[in-house]
Design a protein around this nucleic acid. Structure first.
Lengths: 104, 104
DNA sequence: ATTACTGTACGTGGATAGTCGTACAGTTAA
DNA sequence: TTAACTGTACGACTATCCACGTACAGTAAT
């Protein structure tokens, strides 16, 4: 399977990250991936069609939030925590904490 | 002039805040207001029509980012820093720092 | 009262977002 | 080699976003 395009660390733009996370489905994905590890595309969100998920993977990938790595017939998703922490220190941690706050 | 509707502190939703700031014009507004104080609508951004600005003021207001207060024939805009800091500790500071990082 | 000023409301048009179904490419298993 | 599985590509459709011009309401100044 072809490796999709990812922005380099320096190409990650704050506005794209915020816009990507300004969506409930994608915020949920962030929360799942924040625990660490890799997940195939189909193992994160339920009740949404495959083509809809593909759309959201693209938004998250092109904004620099996630990485997609081919493995067999799966694409494994993971959070680009090191890159995001290096580019915008504290941002991810603060957003995740705010989301916990918000959903309680 | 009629006071427009603002969400209460508890009604502020993280996703709305992130979506509001995931736009270059509105991020610029945040940066201006972050210095503190109140500004009339027409004194923040140039080169955009009044009706376009009204649209962005609504997005920022309804997401809970800004306050609009009537004063004479002006509406004074200010950042809802206390409310945002109370609701999402550190979020605003981190985003502003990230924006400085991003624009350099 | 009349005029000027500040900003919103409303309608419009083009662009983008979000959803889906179908079709297809690549990989693995039978 | 066939069949099943994972996910993307593409096109369609609806809804929302973003920008604008025009019209109007409220306030202040003349």
């Amino acid at each position: 399977m072809l490796e999709p395009h990812h922005p380099t660390r320096d190409q990650i733009r704050l506005e794209n990250v915020l816009a990507a996370l300004g969506n409930p489905l994608r915020m949920t994905v962030l929360q799942v991936l924040a625990a660490g590890g890799e997940y195939p595309c189909g193992a994160i969100v339920e009740g949404v069609s495959k083509s809809t998920l593909t759309h959201h993977w693209r938004v998250l990938r092109e904004s620099g939030v996630i990485n997609q790595r081919a493995s067999g017939r799966e694409l494994l998703l993971s959070l680009r925590r090191e890159d995001l922490d290096a580019r915008f220190p504290g941002l991810l941690t603060t957003i995740l904490a705010a989301h916990q706050q918000s959903s309680s």
